[in-house]
Design a protein around this nucleic acid. Structure first.
Length: 566
RNA sequence: CGGGGUGUGGCCUAGCUGGCUUAGGGCGUCUGGUUUGGGACCAGAAGAUCCUGGGUUCAAAUCCCAGCACCCCGACCA
């Protein structure tokens, strides 16, 4: 392709609010332009990269046995009502009406559509399993778009949905997709960490995220030093050591406590360890019920775990007024003697301590020697603790906190959708059963940005060859008399005929420096320069984008040289 | 949605204690010329509802109100 004919151009300046390297270079090099917040145009070189990524994903999905289809962008809203997701999805559904006033959701994920499609057929166990997938533009009215292509409101996603007769069969596919994803990201040049994560609004019981470590990412996860365990902070588990279980239970005692409202104030006042204090956090769920989360003082409450344990859709912190309304006091909340309508949820860490201390539901009064079962009885008990950097994993290895970009994930859905949508197949025993399902997504645009985030220097992007917009950036410099133009034209034709993807900078009124700067910015793997200098030796300068050295290669040998060095 | 901030040619911005603005500069664009190994130079030109609407005033880019858009921080995700 001729650079003089390409629509879009590089720029030296950029909007002041661009922060991330990927965003900056994708903008400056002319891969993308923003339309409205979180909605992007893909320009000629941008769409080339996106299509290459999509092609790799498609090849690997096909190789894994999945089958490509396409669903409409507009999803009948009734389907979303069947699964009760018109309210509960994490992103705002965008709804449009047609001329008959029928409502449709702009597709943000396609579980309902796929299940609806499948239930239109009378399938039996003989037809199972299968995995159907699509590439489509997804619409999510995110509360806040950010980071260029990292978090947008409209994006290309590959989403796959598998249907099985039972859980065992599903597990094979889950593993199969896991492997396929590993292959995909390897081919894209991305090293991924597979972390356990929360299913969120998608539903189901477990899932794994494929995360590329990066400071630009929004996913916080913990990984054990031995690499055996990796989990998103929402679900990460860790070892809660027993602290003082050998102690004898002593009598509950109320004491005056002229202290501030923080945990540290409690430690300072009583001169007791932080871990022996009980941390009390009062939440309100979507039904207006009060949920008191209690946990060992040296741990924090994990809202996601709490949500899952209490089966809440939404949790918010209670206000000071609400706390007082329950007859308690901010900073002095206690499970002991709390209003009966409060659901008390205890972290299992409270089983690792005895004779704990904490508030007494009265201002400046504390309780000493609080013991579970004896002094208070939680309504629910389980793991609601947030793992932190430095904690030990269950295997005894130290956990490290890390940040990354979630480029894909795989979900167990189980019967979540099939049961709600009454989607059944006929099993070998002649009985109708619900499909057991899984789903698997990859954000193509986010993956593109992630590659740019990982592969760049201070001059521009350094695309891995598998996704580069062009393999070769051919540059002609010099004046007409030098003969460089003619030679560059000639070489361009030769390379194209050899089937190479070439971006030919044929612009004649641009200085050499600008062409080099553009080549670095766009980031094709090979840069070829034809100039008076190289012509004197009947050769071409070849430089790899990821190396500093340039070599002179005889013109006749160029194709061989590039093919061999790949 | 809560908190904070910003809106001036395509981009970066000056002006913002009201009048000196016919809104200034740099980048980019166009024309002519000189240049061609790291965003070159000279000369000229075009390009602006100063976010929108209302108000205050003799006078508003500038002050006030409302709306909209965008950005940053939080809750959400591919």
């Amino acid at each position: 392709m001729r650079q003089s004919k390409i629509f879009s151009k590089t720029t030296k300046t950029m909007p002041a609010d661009i922060k991330l390297a990927s965003h900056k270079f994708l903008y400056k090099a002319g891969f993308i332009r923003e339309s409205a917040a979180g909605r992007y145009y893909f320009l000629p070189i941008g769409i080339r990269v996106r299509e290459k990524i999509a092609k790799i994903v498609e090849e690997e999905m096909n190789r894994a046995g999945a089958i490509k289809i396409i669903t409409p962008v507009l999803h009948p809203l009734d389907l979303w009502k069947e699964t009760n997701r018109t309210q509960s999805v994490g992103f705002e559904l965008m709804i449009v009406k047609d001329r008959n006033n029928s409502e449709f959701a702009l597709g943000g994920t396609a579980e309902e559509m796929m299940v609806d499609l499948v239930r239109k057929f009378s399938l039996s166990y003989r037809d199972l399993p299968f995995n159907i997938y699509q590439f489509s533009q997804k619409f999510r009215d995110e509360m806040r778009a950010r980071g260029g292509l990292l978090r947008v409101r409209e994006f290309m996603m590959k989403d796959a949905y598998s249907f099985h007769a039972d859980e065992d069969d599903f597990k094979k596919e889950y593993q199969n997709m896991w492997e396929a994803y590993k292959n995909i990201f390897n081919r894209l040049g991305l090293a991924t960490v597979v972390v356990e994560a929360d299913n969120g609004y998608i539903g189901g019981e477990y899932c794994h995220e494929f995360v590329v470590e990066s400071d630009a990412g929004e996913s916080r996860f913990l990984i054990s030093a031995d690499g055996a365990y990796a989990a998103h902070e929402d679900v990460a588990q860790f070892e809660k050591k027993c602290m003082n279980l050998e102690e004898k239970l002593t009598d509950l005692k109320e004491v005056d406590a002229q202290r501030g409202n923080t945990m540290e104030d409690g430690v300072d006042f009583h001169q007791l360890p932080l871990w022996q204090q009980i941390k009390d956090v009062l939440f309100v769920n979507e039904k207006g019920e009060f949920i008191l989360a209690i946990i060992r003082g040296d741990f924090d409450v994990n809202k996601t775990k709490l949500k899952n344990l209490t089966k809440s859709v939404d949790l918010r912190h209670a206000t000071d007024e609400e706390i007082r309304g329950l007859g308690s006091e901010p900073g002095f909340i206690s499970p002991v003697g709390i209003d009966k309508k409060v659901i008390v949820v205890a972290d299992d860490s409270l089983r690792t301590i005895k004779n704990a201390y904490g508030g007494a539901n009265k201002k400046n009064k504390d309780l000493l020697n609080i013991n579970i079962d004896r002094d208070y009885q939680p309504n629910l008990e389980g793991d609601i603790a947030m793992a932190q950097d430095g904690f030990l994993s269950e295997g005894g290895s130290r956990l490290q906190e890390s940040k990354g970009i979630e480029v894909g994930n795989i979900f167990q859905l189980g019967y979540h959708y099939s049961s709600k949508m009454n989607a059944k197949f006929t099993d070998a025993d002649g009985k109708e059963k619900f499909y057991y399902m899984g789903c698997y997504g990859i954000g193509i645009d986010r993956t593109l940005a992630t590659i740019a985030e990982k592969y760049h220097d201070d001059k521009g992007i350094i695309w891995p060859e598998s996704v580069a917009p062009f393999k070769i950036h051919l540059i002609g410099i010099g004046n007409q008399e030098s003969g460089a133009w003619d030679k560059a034209e000639e070489l361009y034709k030769i390379l194209e005929q050899a089937g190479m993807e070439v971006l030919f900078d044929d612009r004649r009124d641009i200085t050499a420096g600008e062409k080099f700067a553009d080549a670095d910015l766009i980031g094709c793997p090979y840069r070829l320069v034809v100039s008076e200098k190289t012509l004197a030796k009947n050769s071409v300068e070849v430089k790899k984008r990821n190396e500093d050295k340039a070599e002179l290669v005889e013109i006749g040998e160029v194709i061989k040289y590039i093919t061999h060095s790949t």
